[in-house]
């Protein structure tokens, strides 16, 4: 993976794009516009994945986050009361709590980041995640990105993978329960 000037230029360009849109997401008074900018954020993050050579991850990012998550939130917004109209001024309650959560998240990110450095052999660069590392170590070079990903998920990362499926199952059951409760009244 060449890390030349063009690469870094793209990296900073896309990062600036993501940050710019992310700021609009939290400051725009119109709910619908926030969502459209959220979509741009997701696409930008997919671009960052592409820069790292994680093609599969980029594709899934666009498919799930842009096509799935954004559309679902969009649907929820369309069902809300202020669909037609310019929206209202931003009201944020619990600013203190928000700062605490954001700080916790920052700590978590740094912890993850530094843990990657610890477990990595010296030849790998610090910002490659364990999964990407596994992919990079995949036995044959003919093996594509996708296959390596599948193998990694079903061998080294099987337990987290299964935990995620349990989590999704719980979410589905929860959603059905909530929908039933409000429907029966």
């Amino acid at each position: 993976m060449g890390r030349d000037v063009v690469w870094w230029a793209f990296f900073y360009l896309i990062s600036a794009f993501v940050l710019f849109n992310a700021i609009i997401v939290v400051t725009s008074p119109t709910l619908f516009r926030c969502l459209l900018h959220l979509m741009l954020v997701f696409i930008g993050v997919a671009g960052l994945f592409l820069l790292q050579g994680a093609i599969f991850l980029a594709g899934v990012q666009v498919l799930i986050y842009t096509g799935g998550v954004t559309t679902l939130i969009l649907f929820a917004v369309m069902l809300s009361e202020e669909v037609v109209g310019k929206g209202r001024a931003l009201v944020s309650r619990g600013k203190g709590m928000g700062i605490v959560v954001a700080a916790c998240f920052l700590v978590l990110m740094f912890a993850l980041y530094s843990s990657c450095v610890v477990f990595l052999p010296p030849t790998y660069e610090a910002h490659i995640s364990p999964v990407a590392q596994f992919v990079a170590k995949a036995p044959s070079s003919a093996m594509g990105n996708v296959e390596a990903f599948g193998v990694a998920l079903l061998t080294q990362f099987l337990v987290p993978f299964e935990f995620v499926s349990v989590l999704i199952l719980v979410a589905i059951v929860g959603a059905i329960t909530v929908a039933r409760l409000s429907g029966s009244k």
């Binding site: 979509m39 594709g59 498919l63 842009t66 096509g67 954004t70 559309t71 969009l74 649907f75 369309m78």
Partner: peptide, 11 residues
């Protein structure tokens, strides 16, 4: 992935 963006445009 690409075609799933269409719906956002329509909405």
């Amino acid at each position: 992935a690409i075609t799933s963006i269409t719906v956002i445009g329509i909405v």
